[in-house]
């Protein structure tokens, strides 16, 4: 029994890597623009389907889809940005409805292009078992966990050391003050969308490489990313990482101990618990309540 639980913990941690990438993208955009991009999960899904196309059409490893996915997802992310910037009034609420609409467009475009069938990788290399002592996983899970850790390290470096990264943080914490310091908030917003797109592209290819995808999946990913940011409290990268790992572990434990049908429910349960007990998240600053 304890072996099963240990195994679930391990799988959960690996799964948490891509969750963290998705949630960080959502949080970055929310930071600079105060806009939640409800189409974020669909962007991830788009990358996943690119991986599927590269594998099924050209017989290549899903890894080769990353450049294409990066370009496509970043273009879509910037398009979403431009649509949001066209909103004239009441941007906070209208942007939700707008990105919800973009999500519908993307989901149905995926449905039209790739049909409603469930897809997964057929690459034997990706699915091969990788055993570390008592822990078992697919090769792709470990590979993409390492990739996501590296990306998060890069993101951390970028946010704390580079000019644009600092600009993103400056705009997030005080837009007007950042403007006075000579930072163009519009550029920063675009940059945050592009970075979110990059993270989403990697997460999408990862999800295709070790899991299954279908058109309706994007919506669920957005919800998960949001749950993680609530767990974390917005504005904290380590918080998002811990939140993502928590969600991954909680889901894996539920699948092991109860049933896979309840997997989605546990995320909601965590979410409610945090809202009741610690409304500002595990690591967040105050200010979410109205």
């Amino acid at each position: 029994m304890s072996e099963l639980i240990m195994q679930a913990l391990y799988s959960g941690v690996l799964q948490g890597g891509s969750y963290a990438l998705i949630a960080l993208g959502l949080a970055l955009v929310f930071g600079t623009m105060k806009v939640i991009n409800l189409a974020h999960g669909e962007l991830v899904l788009l990358a996943a389907y690119m991986a599927y196309t590269v594998e099924s059409r050209f017989g290549l490893s899903p890894m080769f889809a990353i450049p294409v996915a990066l370009v496509l997802v970043c273009i879509c992310a910037v398009l979403v940005y431009f649509l949001i910037s066209l909103i004239r009034k009441d941007r906070e609420l209208n942007s939700l409805i707008l990105t919800y609409g973009v999500g519908i467009i993307l989901t149905n475009a995926v449905l039209l292009i790739w049909s409603a069938d469930v897809r997964s990788t057929s690459s034997a290399w990706m699915q091969d078992a990788l055993v570390f002592g008592p822990f078992y996983s697919m090769r792709s899970e470990v590979l993409f966990f390492v990739v996501s850790m590296a990306l998060m390290g890069g993101l951390w470096w970028w946010l704390s050391k580079s000019w644009y990264g600092r600009a993103v943080r400056a705009v997030s914490s005080n837009r007007d003050a950042a403007k006075l310091m000579g930072i163009n908030p519009r550029t920063t917003e675009i940059v945050s969308f592009v970075v979110a797109g990059i993270l989403a592209a990697f997460a999408g290819v990862a999800i295709f490489s070790y899991g299954v995808i279908q058109p309706a999946f994007g919506h669920a990913l957005t919800v998960k990313a949001f749950i993680i940011t609530v767990l974390a409290g917005i504005g904290s990268i380590p918080g998002v990482m811990v939140g993502a790992l928590l969600l991954g572990i909680a889901e894996a434990l539920t699948v092991t101990l109860a049933s896979s049908a309840l997997q989605e429910l546990v995320g909601m349960g965590l979410f409610l618990l945090v809202l009741f007990v610690m409304p500002n998240g595990l690591f967040g600053a105050a200010g979410r309540r109205g």
Binding site: F30, V35, I36, L38, E92, L93, L96, A220, V223, F226, I227, V230, A261, L262, E264, L265, G267, M268, F271, L272, L275, F276, P279, R288, R289, G290
Partner: peptide, 28 residues
């Protein structure tokens, strides 16, 4: 109700998450 005290986007997304709960409950 606990979600009502949340500001704009939090409310919208929380209620989106809630809708999933009821679907799972009805299935299970």
């Amino acid at each position: 109700l606990p979600v009502l005290r949340l500001k704009g986007p939090y409310f919208a997304l929380a209620i989106l998450a809630y809708a999933h709960i009821f679907k799972i409950l009805a299935t299970e």
